[in-house]
């Protein structure tokens, strides 16, 4: 057991980061070169001002018409994404690991808050899964892969939550948690989770076209 643990938090973690960072960079750089090769004109239309204007209107809750028309979805997506990104970074147990390995540490969330945030992520994934089932326009475009992405995203939080509470055998759960987290990171460059990086560019381009050429708002 100890051997497996050492392996998943040692070499496998290194591999995960290499694949996650390398894969994401590969996707972004290859896309940049493709753009440069075939759609070079896109760069001529890019505008920092209108890129930021567009991005801001879509990362501030209720700043777009569509968000205001769907308050529940808006709250769920924002809460979900915030918890998804903040919890793992500011979780005390994670910071302790950084401290042990690299002598790096920073402010940590109180455990009870992190606990709630993990539940929020899990709850939001359940909500999104139900939404895919219930709303016909979403169900129509949903495939197995869409549920898989939700499962991949929820898994580190489910296993982390269970490991923290130690309801089931701790070591096993911890190993599963690490594996789940690694799976999620590795999945990012190879699935639609890539939207985490692409979002900024698609928004910036659309914002630039709407603002710079069409003199219109895109929110």
């Amino acid at each position: 057991m100890q051997g497996i643990y050492e392996f998943v938090r040692g070499p496998l973690l290194w591999l995960t980061f290499i694949v996650f960072i390398g894969g994401s960079l590969y996707r972004l750089i290859s896309m940049y070169y493709l753009l440069k090769k075939k759609e070079r004109w896109v760069f001529n239309y890019m505008s920092l001002k209108y890129s930021l204007r567009s991005i801001l209107h879509w990362i501030i809750p209720f700043a777009s018409a569509n968000m205001r028309q769907r308050p529940i979805m808006t709250v769920m997506s924002f809460v979900f994404h915030i918890c998804l990104l903040v919890t793992p970074v500011f979780l005390l147990s994670h910071i302790v690991l950084w401290d042990e390995s690299w002598n790096l540490s920073w402010w940590a969330l109180p455990d009870w808050i992190a606990d709630i945030m993990a539940l929020v992520v899990i709850g939001a994934c359940v909500f999104f899964a139900f939404r895919r089932q219930i709303l016909p326009e979403v169900k129509y475009v949903t495939s197995v892969a869409d549920y898989a992405i939700l499962a991949i995203t929820a898994a580190p939080f489910i296993t982390g939550f269970l490991a923290y509470h130690q309801w089931i055998e701790y070591r096993t759960m911890l190993i599963l948690h690490i594996l789940a987290g690694e799976a999620m990171l590795v999945a990012i460059p190879f699935t639609r989770l890539i939207h985490m990086f692409y979002f900024w560019f698609t928004r910036a381009y659309t914002g630039s076209e709407f603002g710079g050429v069409r003199h219109a708002r895109d929110w």
């Binding site: 896309m31 493709l34 090769k37 075939k38 692409y198 698609t202």
Partner: peptide
Amino acid sequence: AARMKVYVDTCIHC
């Protein structure tokens, strides 16, 4: 090219 690829890969089917 890139635009189509990014659009299709980014769409989260929401």
